[in-house]
Design a protein around this nucleic acid. Structure first.
Lengths: 145, 145
DNA sequence: GTTGCTGCAAATCCTTTGCAAGGTT
DNA sequence: AACCTTGCAAAGGATTTGCAGCAAC
């Protein structure tokens, strides 16, 4: 079985910001609390809609901070539209994206790590990173014909 | 060794368009001939600059046709900026992106296929696609300190 | 009191689209 | 002739940025 990370809380996004030496403002606290509650991937626009009290610019600026802090990861759906997701795993993981409901799951699997280790040795050059997304139709979306 | 596809010609992009039943216009021929000469990945904007005689809209429309025809693939650099690349391999492959010079190579490797086969069985849901990019510093960019 | 943060609006980047005119089959 | 394609300019989505005012440290 693939190990799918539960939508656990981790450290909380506010803490992530504090750890970067950022000032603690009302907007950031609001945003962090709001995002902490999101198990699923979301778009910046969606957040702007849900938090009319926080300016769009602040939302984008804060999301970027959180991505840089490693507390969120930014990814793209198959059609290229951007989504953010709480980084439940403290570290390295990959994404499983349902092409129907657009839900995103994080996963780890030894076969992926094995592949990456192999590539590290085989590739001409130094591997500095990667991106892996697997597109699926999830069990919930596979209609019970 | 990874099998890196040489920047070979393949079928030519014009043929790809013909095969889709598209009309053969002067702009399309120009664009196809121009892209045929490109070994490296490129941006749409770059093409628009290089072919001032062809309208931006036509360039985007034709690039999209070529992507749908499978003759080009569209990808994103690590920073998210979009790039197109001639699809040298007739089929399925992955990308090696140098984070310094931004050059993109296609590659295939059995370890990747093995990993995908494993994931197909392990994942909860039906796998319908994937995206894999490995970011490197290529040998040319690794400065001879 | 500094320095950093916010919001607004304007600006940017990448791309799509409406529409009238012209090219292809 | 019928239908597709083109180009222009406007529209659109996602983000960024300039800047003045305000809040955190």
């Amino acid at each position: 079985m693939v190990h799918q990370h539960a939508p656990q809380e981790g450290l909380g996004l506010l803490e992530a910001l504090e750890d970067c030496g950022q000032r603690m403002t009302g907007q950031r606290a609001l945003l962090a609390r709001h995002l902490d509650g999101k198990a699923e991937a979301f778009s910046a626009e969606e957040i702007a809609r849900e938090l009319p009290g926080v300016g769009r610019a602040t939302i984008y600026r804060t999301l970027k901070l959180l991505v840089e802090a490693g507390a969120l990861c930014k990814m793209q759906l198959p059609d290229g539209s951007p989504r953010y997701k709480r980084d439940a795993a403290a570290h390295h993981h990959h994404h499983l994206v349902c092409t129907v409901c657009r839900r995103v799951e994080e996963f780890r699997h030894p076969s992926v790590e094995r592949m990456l280790r192999t590539m590290r040795d085989e590739v001409g050059g130094t591997v500095v990173g990667h991106r892996l997304e697997i597109f699926i139709v999830c069990n919930d979306c596979r209609q019970p014909s």
